[in-house]
Nucleic acid binder design. Structure first.
Lengths: 342, 342
DNA sequence: CAATCCGATGGTAGCGCTGTCAATATTCGT
DNA sequence: ACGAATATTGACAGCGCTACCATCGGATTG
């Protein structure tokens, strides 16, 4: 005994088909590939759907078609500005496509990431976007078994699970230090909070640049596993000054920390850049308009998000990008905080 | 002709049931309400599921049970720090529940919001979290028809669609201005970017407080529809100084703008707070550690997110909160930028 | 000891949609 | 004008799961 409508009173595809005088499958095609219908049927189905206020049942569609139109996104933080930009890129592209985004927060834990990846299996996502390249072996296995396009974002490496879009944090760190060295700085501190894998690679760039210049000194390095913040920038900088009072520059792994250093310098009346050069990372919006403005490494986070979704959708539609690894690069924005000493 | 497994090779509930020697429905119950099974069956199903690596098919479940376990979230911006905090609260609670979050970005457009709300209908979400109280009439109709708990967040009002959690932006604005007035300030500027409804209500608080003090002056007010930023804070402040050179305080609708004003004052060598008091809004992390530290209105954004999800889930589980409207309040954090003139 | 209740389990019948492939209509080339 | 190729359309049979109701044995009650 079939009713006229769904229990909750909504119209079904069959109801639309009946009203339009076509078979259910024809109506179904109207919503997925209207070009396949003759003009007349197309119009009939369209007006029938409108009249009934038909809304497709996504669960039924997913069940029948054996696939969903969900792209899973795993990011490590919802607070960090860096990820909000990436997310905006992701959502901007996704909202104009038929795919929807399922976002989860790994909180910088690769075990949590592994667990969430397993959860995604149940959804049979159409694609996956994961942060970074440091997944557990188990996570990689799960991903490989998932049979959908996968993009690793934020950084690039040699062994993509599938595809990648990002840039080299090592090179970026190296470039930042090279800049300071070229300005005549010798005692360049490293200031890092929450040493996630990408921050670690920025550090590697710092270390190698300093080593190459014969200037590496453990006393110049301070890090903490605590999350990053402006306040933490000031605190760590104070630490660093105790350990290396002759420090003449500091490389902060992000702009929040750098801003904290700027404020701490003001408190202590340390002249920037004369006595202390400061370089940040990410080029957040405030870095250009702070006083002094902060030299920083600009990265294309919004583009990264857009790219990632696009790579996923193109792959689904059999237009897989020729290059599985996309390097979006970075740009050192030199500003007042690291201008040459007079 | 039924196969042993799904086409893609995954085990189905029936396969688990067969291996465990129980009926499919018993196996089904194991995953939804294990307590209903006898210990022996429970163990049998559990080990069978593990052996087959069974992962439930969410689409099938949603179709058969006529409901999903998705909570839809509509927010106007993915960039604004304010929302990242709310989101973090939402995700923290949701990730420990059986509900998953479906997030969409309305980009401050109530028309886009309406469209997205319709999209959500198709998903039959278990609950909905929407930003603010300024939905279109059509949006309200759609929501009312959705037959699921709905929480409006960020602010409170008198006519909840269903439930609300937030605080009074009017009161917050009024309080901020009262503080400045009590410090002896008379020419208090208003600096607003992207005048969304909540910012508008902060403005109403400003206007009424100034009017009550007989100090309202249009020249003291500057706003722009452009999104907020630190840079914009400096720009608008410069505008304001031209229009009202005798200004002795400024209320910024958020801390980014306030930070921009701090920098602009430094550039112009305007002494803060002696010549110019500054009050921000939201109490972002940097406000406490900037130089000078910035007086701001602290709001419980993380809690707001947590609350919203909790209200939804409790309602679903028939433990609807007694109070449909939760006022999380705010707190004025008085700091250097608005200390009393000597 | 029969009547009653309750917890545990299973059978049946879909949920609303789409994949597959066959059946028709339509167009085209020669 | 005729067969072949192509464009449209439809019938059927599930997708994997759960709601609903029936069943059954055992505990409880007077």
């Amino acid at each position: 005994m079939r009713r006229n409508r769904t229990k909750s009173g909504e119209a079904r595809l069959t109801d639309v088909a009946k009203l339009a005088g076509v078979s259910p499958i024809t109506a179904s095609r109207f919503f997925r590939n209207p070009e396949a219908l003759s003009i007349s049927k197309r119009e009939r189905v369209e007006s029938a759907a409108k009249e009934l206020g038909y809304v497709p049942n996504l669960a039924a569609r997913a069940l029948a078609s054996q696939r969903s139109e969900v792209i899973g996104v795993l990011i490590p933080s919802l607070t960090n500005n860096v990820f909000s930009d990436v997310l905006r890129g992701i959502y901007d592209v996704a909202q104009n496509s038929r795919y929807s985004i399922q976002l989860v927060n790994t909180r910088y834990s690769i075990l949590q990431e592994e667990k969430l990846l397993r959860l995604f299996q149940a959804q049979k996502p159409a694609g996956l976007i994961v942060t970074g390249i440091n997944q557990t072996a188990e996570s990689r296995t799960v991903m490989q078994a998932m049979n959908c396009p996968i993009v690793q974002i934020m950084e690039i490496g040699n062994e993509p699970v599938d595809m990648m879009v990002g840039f080299s944090h090592y090179d970026a760190g190296f470039t930042a230090i090279s800049h300071l060295l070229s300005q005549g700085r010798k005692r360049i501190g490293f200031l890092g909070a929450r040493m996630d894998p990408r921050v670690q690679r920025r550090f590697d760039g710092y270390r190698d640049a300093m080593k190459a210049a014969g200037l590496l000194d453990q006393r110049l390095i301070v890090t903490t596993p605590v999350p990053t913040s402006v306040t933490m920038g000031g605190t760590l900088f104070a630490d660093l000054l105790i350990r290396a009072p002759d420090m003449d520059a500091v490389f902060c792994v992000n702009d929040d920390l750098a801003l904290g250093v700027v404020f701490e310098c003001e408190r202590r009346q340390i002249a920037v850049p004369d006595q202390m050069a400061i370089v940040g990372f990410n080029d957040l919006e405030f870095s250009a308009s702070s006083v002094p403005s902060i030299t920083s490494v600009r990265t294309n986070r919004y583009e990264m998000g857009r790219h990632a979704v696009t790579m996923v959708t193109e792959t689904i539609e059999n237009r897989r990008p020729e290059q599985p690894i996309v390097d979006l690069g970075f740009e050192l924005m030199v500003r007042q905080s690291s201008a040459k000493v007079a």
